[in-house]
Amino acid sequence: MSVLIIAEHDNKSLKPATLNTVTAATQIDADVHVLVVGFECQTVVEQAAQVSGVTKVLVADNAAYEHQLAENVSKLVVDVAAGYGHILAPATTTGKNTLPRVAALLNVAQLSDVIKVESADTFVRPIYAGNAIATVKTTDAVKVLTIRTTGFDAAASTGGSAERQVLSQVITSDRSRFVKEQLAESDRPELTAASVIISGGRGMGNGDNFKLLEGVADKLGAAIGASRAAVDAGFVPNDLQVGQTGKTVAPDLYIAVGISGAIQHLAGMKDSKVIVAINKDEDAPIFQVADYGLVADLFDAVPELEKSL
């Protein structure tokens, strides 16, 4: 049976997380449909139709869907769910917000943060902050899954030519109203899509010192991240948080600066290909997962690193 994916987008562009989800979907079934719910989101539809492996794009384009509120989007998904064996969304804050409602309305379970597809009914997902890996089997008629993007390669963004179907139903959300959004603006790559990340922790001392990381990030084309300790201390905003309850990342290179390496942080980055740790405490747990550890004062090492790149 076909797989339905709820696209991650901001009405302007399709987010890379969708591409990883397409790869997961193609491992379940060859017939992969993508649902684009939004407002004035035609560019997203064009992009989704070109993704390799996508056979059909469903479009619900209406002002009622502008902010992709969970209340009405979930009802729309349930409306079109008939005929699908699996419903997937990337495990982003949007997917995590909406998909459990879909599962509850369909009276089925949701499997969160799937990192591997064993078969059409058996999936692998981390539990206990990634300290245990569970394999689970579901006999639910519709299988609802959120996909951890780091578990799957991105599908090619071009090469496909999916047919399109416009959905006419308009479902409003009367008891939930969008008020405002404060989105971080940055020229750097998105954390979850970056191939290099440099993250700061409590050792950075304050928010101003994160500027030190910017120099290195500029040279490497890196995204900047942070540990929970740095976010809790107010050094940087929440959208930089990498960890069990923040973002999960797996770049080619992860540089942890002044981060001790709490379990919660490791849960979000230990699948990175190469990990570098710079910390003045040689007993910091981060060194146990780092491929290259440098015991040094970050305030000396980071400027030197910037110069030598």
Partner: peptide, 9 residues
């Protein structure tokens, strides 16, 4: 707290 920053509903 959303991926891109903050949203108020």
């Amino acid at each position: 707290e959303i991926d891109g920053g903050l949203q108020t509903l």
